[in-house]
Amino acid sequence: MEKYVVLKKKDFNDFIAKLALMQTVVAPVKKGKKSFAFQEVTTGKEIALQYIPTILPPKKYFMPQQETIMKFNKAKFEWTPVLEYNEITIFGVHTCDLAGIQCLNMVFTNKPKDINYIVRKDKITIIGFECNAYCDEFASCAAMDNHIPNGGYDLFFTELNDSFIIHVNTLMGEKIIEEISLFSKANDDNLKELEELRTKKREIFKNELNTKHSDLKAVFENSFNSKVWKDIGAKCVACGNCTNVCPTCYCFDIKDEMNLDFNTGSRIRVWDSCQNEDFAKVAGGESFREERANRQKHRYMRKFNYPVDKFSRYFCTGCGRCTRTCMAQIKLKETVNALAEEKK
């Protein structure tokens, strides 16, 4: 049977403090007027519970921006594969970002499996947090069907009137609830309140796009030659922000770093972006996506078309980060709507 517990709001700070004693806790922290970031916290007061999706998604903990994958000793020609990880708890993950983590899991457990990712993800405890209302106008989580929790967490918090109701999803979640004895069993009233909240949510969150979830793939499949890409290409400055902030962009580069002894060093994996000029360049100098328009198209295809073939899932989570971060005002909702409009 599904297990729900309740935490009084007045106990929230205590909960985070106790959790932080068990393990490093990271949670959304306010960075500026509309900017938030996941950072280490030790008290509940530091956490921004009402937050717009953070600048970078929690993917930064699952695939770090820079990660050593091998150590070498040149003189001895010795190579040691290594794994880097932190045992952490991420508190406050929205449903869009839970979906993002699920996408990354699919990619890195796909054969040939990525051991570094797989081991690291198992060292991370995930505590979700429900959005009871829209964060802002850029989100399209309802269109992507990610506005209601759909697994991918150990615990999931939903804010009720004077308490939080928490879905206990895993043994790890269970362990936290047991060790931090601030929780009580959810009663029928609590469950009813949650039920009502979800019903209300279904009224607030409505498909933000002009296209049905199931039809999105077809829109993109038929849009390779669309004029929309040209318009976007003219706006784009190829800064790469959209891919860095995307919870499901996972492209990387592999580089060597030599230590100052000129003998030992590391092979590292760093985030890369298909928006960069030379991302798809080959030795002869040809680039298969020289135009910015084609690079943007590629980014969208990687969200709405290609992964459906490969993983039966859209890789857009509806978090809205790419739109929020884009200086050139390339807006995901507008793009999708324009493509769909053109198809009609």
Partner: peptide, 20 residues
């Protein structure tokens, strides 16, 4: 590097100056 400082700035999760 021939890409914009924004790339690194975003990775450092700074609030964008333009937003300020």
């Amino acid at each position: 590097p021939d890409n914009a400082v924004c790339v690194e700035c975003k990775l450092n999760e700074n609030e964008c100056m333009y937003d300020k």
